[in-house]
């Protein structure tokens, strides 16, 4: 019985560490994207990686590592509030940029080359 409990505890620890590593990867990528991307809108997408996915993964890790069901339920309630508040913040920033006339960055599309001797005569 003790062996079974130890195995479950170890599995929980491994799962917690794995999800924390995933959260760290998304957080670092979010920061890199925020520096690398060309305009405010694309940077908001990058910051969503660290602001949404990384935080959500950290919450999941906390649930796995929670000492009892009561603590886990509190984290679930916090996750519900996070689900509501986080996109609202992003939406407010993006909407303000959109309504103040900030044009989104566009990748320049190459025009197809004309073949020699083609075109209108």
């Amino acid at each position: 019985m003790t062996g079974w409990h130890e195995a479950v505890a170890m599995a929980r620890e491994i799962a917690t560490v794995a999800v924390c590593i995933l959260a760290s990867i998304f957080a670092i990528a979010g920061v890199i994207g925020t520096i690398r991307f060309p305009d405010a809108y694309t940077r908001l997408h990058a910051s969503a990686l660290s602001g949404t996915t990384a935080v959500f993964s950290a919450f999941i890790a906390s649930i796995i590592a929670a000492a009892n069901a009561g603590v886990a339920m509190r984290i679930v309630v916090i996750m519900v509030f996070f689900l509501v508040s986080n996109p609202t913040t992003t939406h407010i920033i993006a909407r303000y940029a959109w309504q103040s006339g900030l044009d989104p960055w566009k990748r320049l599309e190459r025009k197809p080359r004309r073949k020699h001797g083609g075109g209108r005569r």
Partner: peptide
């Protein structure tokens, strides 16, 4: 709209 903004890669303007 919130769900679209919640998923990275799409933002509801």
């Amino acid at each position: 709209a919130e769900s679209i903004t919640f998923t990275p890669g799409t933002i509801a303007l």
